[in-house]
Simulated assay, not measured.
Amino acid sequence: MMNQYDCMIIGGGPAGLSAALTLGRARRKVALVDNGTNRNRVTQESHGFLTRDGIKPQEFKNLASKDIESYPSITMMDQTVIEIIKDDITGLFLVNTSENKTYVTEKILLATGIQEEFPLPQIRQYYGKSLFSCPYCDGWELRDKPLAIIAENEEHISHMTKLVFNWSQDLIVFTNGHQLSKKIQNDFEQKKIKAYTNAIKDLHGDDGNLSSVELEPGDNILRAGGFVVPSFYRPNKFAKQLNCQVDENGTIMTDGAGRTTAAGIYIAGETEKGGPSSLMIAAAEGFKAASSINMDITIERF
């Protein structure tokens, strides 16, 4: 069949791109399907990836795509997958897209990642430019600046504040109407970290650069950036629909090498844990899952 593949990779972030490269080099017929909705598309710079520190995510993607173009067995598709159905008789998968295309594949690699939900919709205006969620990725650029920590869960507040304190000690915590325990308040006071438990009315700034946080009583607190703790969700239900088992923490269960509990279905990157990951770790997990896919195909066909 013209549209039949050894493996279809759903998602073209670092995990999917790495997996495609690995499978292409293993002479597998691969389709990489991506619709450009990866969550780091709003980021100005990506950090912590050796030889590419500070690169723009789109440039990283372009370079990876250029690498992949060297392997004729890889097809890249700008499409959106809307349905994956397993044929119980053949064991193959039918992949349907919103462009009314149908493809057949022996293996599926889910690398669609996750998306963020924020405690305030206004955060989107600043996210990726002056508000971030990962200090390891962006703490260096905000070092020693007056920063805001915006989070609502006390455990998350404590963790993020302690972590960011390594890069800047000029911190103010905003809980958006959620109270803090006496212990956390005392911990912050000892480090001269002020915490506001009032609801946040608005964020102010220009062109994505935060300048202040406005509270409900009318106080306007000057800040030059900061970190937020979003909640995360998987943007599709493919893993559930394909009967991949999930543990009590929401992590998709695997053998540690990308194989899920559903035959023929593999995962890589942020899709597995439902939480954020670095570019380097995601790319490494893409390589690992691709190696499992290639080995399984090899054994099954030998």
Rank of each mutant, 00 (worst) to 15 (best):
M1I: 12
N3P: 00
I10N: 05
A19D: 08
A20F: 04
A20M: 05
T22C: 12
G24E: 08
R25P: 02
V30A: 07
L32T: 03
V33R: 09
D34A: 12
N38I: 08
N38T: 08
N38M: 12
G48T: 03
G48P: 02
T51W: 01
D53Q: 05
G54A: 05
Q58N: 11
F60T: 07
K61T: 13
S65H: 09
D67P: 01
I68T: 02
S70D: 05
Y71Q: 11
Y71R: 11
P72C: 12
I74Y: 11
I74W: 12
I74M: 09
M76N: 07
M76E: 11
D78I: 03
Q79W: 05
V81E: 07
I82Y: 00
I84S: 09
I84E: 10
D87G: 01
I89E: 08
T90E: 08
G91N: 03
N96R: 15
S98T: 09
S98F: 09
K101Y: 00
T102C: 14
V104I: 11
V104H: 09
T105Y: 13
K107E: 01
K107R: 14
I108V: 15
I108M: 14
I108E: 10
I108H: 12
T112V: 08
T112S: 12
E116K: 00
E116R: 01
F118M: 12
P121V: 13
Y126A: 02
Y127C: 01
P135V: 06
P135N: 06
P135E: 04
Y136H: 07
W140L: 10
K145Y: 09
A151D: 03
E152F: 03
E154D: 03
S158T: 10
M160T: 13
T161N: 01
K162A: 11
L163R: 07
W167I: 14
Q169H: 09
D170H: 15
D170W: 10
I172Q: 14
F174A: 07
G177E: 00
L180C: 12
S181I: 06
N186A: 12
N186M: 06
F188V: 10
K192L: 11
K194H: 14
K194V: 14
Y196D: 04
N198W: 13
K201Y: 05
L203E: 07
D206R: 13
G208D: 08
G208S: 09
L210D: 03
L210T: 04
S211E: 06
S211L: 01
E214I: 13
P217N: 08
P217K: 04
N220G: 02
I221L: 11
R223T: 11
G225H: 07
G225M: 07
G226F: 03
G226Q: 04
F227H: 00
F227C: 00
P230T: 06
P230F: 03
S231A: 08
F232S: 09
F232E: 08
F232C: 09
R234S: 06
K237A: 10
K237Q: 13
L242Y: 14
L242D: 13
N243F: 14
D247I: 08
T251H: 06
A257W: 07
R259C: 11
A262L: 00
A263H: 14
A263W: 02
Y266L: 08
I267S: 08
A268C: 02
G269E: 01
E270H: 01
T271E: 14
T271Q: 14
G275M: 13
L279Q: 09
A284S: 06
E285V: 06
G286T: 02
K288S: 11
A290E: 12
N294K: 09
M295P: 00
D296T: 13
I299N: 12
F302S: 02
